[in-house]
């Protein structure tokens, strides 16, 4: 149903028309003309031009964007506000391990941490999800059975996305078959950078179909896109192609999530909401390490998209080191004392 909604949204928009973008596409035209031949396997879908029929033109002024993001970092969050924000951050966390050295043991430990982040205070948590490679989905699913913690799996030749589409789709289907509730896919940044937007679009929508009931988070890897303009374009593309969430980064590339990039993506989500009424989720990932940073991101959400997005359904943090810092701050708020790192489990 969700998948079909993604498509129907697309169709809804297809008659909205052009906004002056140079990409003019219709069913009869191969919009990849002039692009590298490696996209031959991409399924063709209609109405690609519609993805630009969004509210604002895509121009982004970097200086003003960064100023705004920084100014929202100056909100002063105290007492109950801080406590509620930190709790929300825990509940929004996709606790992540994406390493070559991941093992069932490590994944099991992470699952426990996600279920009960702070044994001293059972009201904290659980986390939203854990995020693992496909090979560990079964382990995680089993361990998390009966809890509300979702299992997210990266797929589509994570982290580079540099594999043929059929491999990526197989990767996705297997992860879903293993039981993944959510799929974190990567876009082909190379295609994005050479302007083969249609290929990116098609891969996302094909992956969306492959997800079935699983939710799709689309990782733009903003640190490789080089400009806010292209990040904006990629965000619009991903949403139009059926993303449930857009996500900044794999965590393997620096810079990963930053406040201005996140603000920009939230603004695209806002424009999409204005135009369609559909709420897309946002996930900054990588680079969010401290409670203070997490609260800054929550402020960005609150003041850009409002109350409706202040939920794990629509906002997630992709992080590993962040959780313990948030927990330390929570305990600090509860006890009044600064905490020692060794008092918190390092799973």
């Amino acid at each position: 149903m969700i998948a079909s909604r993604g498509v129907s949204t697309l169709e809804d928009q297809s008659d909205i028309g052009e906004t002056g973008e140079s990409l003019k596409c219709d069913d009869s035209v191969s919009y990849s003309e002039g692009a590298p031949a490696f996209n031959a396997d991409a399924p063709r879908r209609g109405g690609v031009g519609s993805m630009y029929a969004l509210f604002a033109p895509p121009a982004v002024d970097a200086v003003a964007l960064e100023e705004r993001a920084a100014s929202l970092g100056k909100r002063s969050l105290k007492g109950e506000t801080k406590l509620a924000g930190l709790r929300l951050a825990v509940a929004m966390m996709d606790l992540t391990t994406l390493e070559g050295k991941d093992t069932p043991g490590k994944v099991n430990q992470l699952c426990e941490k996600a279920r009960i982040p702070l044994y001293q205070d059972p009201s904290v948590g659980p986390c939203a999800a854990i995020c693992v490679y496909p090979n560990h989905v079964v382990t995680a699913k089993a361990r998390l059975a009966g809890s509300s913690v979702k299992v997210a799996s990266v797929a589509t030749a994570f982290p580079s996305g540099q594999s043929p589409l059929d491999i990526k789709l197989a990767d996705t289907r297997r992860a879903v078959d293993f039981g993944a509730d959510e799929i974190d896919m990567v876009i082909d940044r190379g295609a994005m950078l050479v302007g083969d937007f249609a290929r990116v679009f098609d891969e996302i929508s094909a992956t969306k179909e492959a997800c079935g009931h699983a939710h799709l988070k689309v990782i733009l890897e903003t640190g490789e896109l080089g400009s806010y303009d292209l990040i904006r374009k990629a965000s619009e593309l991903a949403i139009a192609a059926g993303a449930d969430f857009i996500k900044t980064s794999t965590g393997k590339i620096q810079p990963a999530a930053t406040p201005p990039v996140t603000l920009l993506m939230l603004e695209v989500i806002r424009d999409h909401y204005y135009a369609s009424g559909r709420r897309i989720g946002m996930k900054p990932a990588g680079g969010v390490r401290t409670a203070k940073q997490a609260l800054h991101y929550l402020v960005l959400v609150k003041e850009t998209l409002g109350d409706a997005w202040l939920t794990p359904d629509l906002f997630r943090f992709g992080a590993s080191a962040l959780l313990n810092d948030v927990l330390m701050q929570l305990e600090k708020q509860r006890t009044g004392n600064y905490q020692a790192a060794d008092d918190f489990s390092k799973d």
Binding site: S76, L77, E80, G306, D307
Partner: peptide, 11 residues
Amino acid sequence: LDFGKAWDYAA
């Protein structure tokens, strides 16, 4: 959009 009090800033 709804900018309400879902998570309001304390003084």
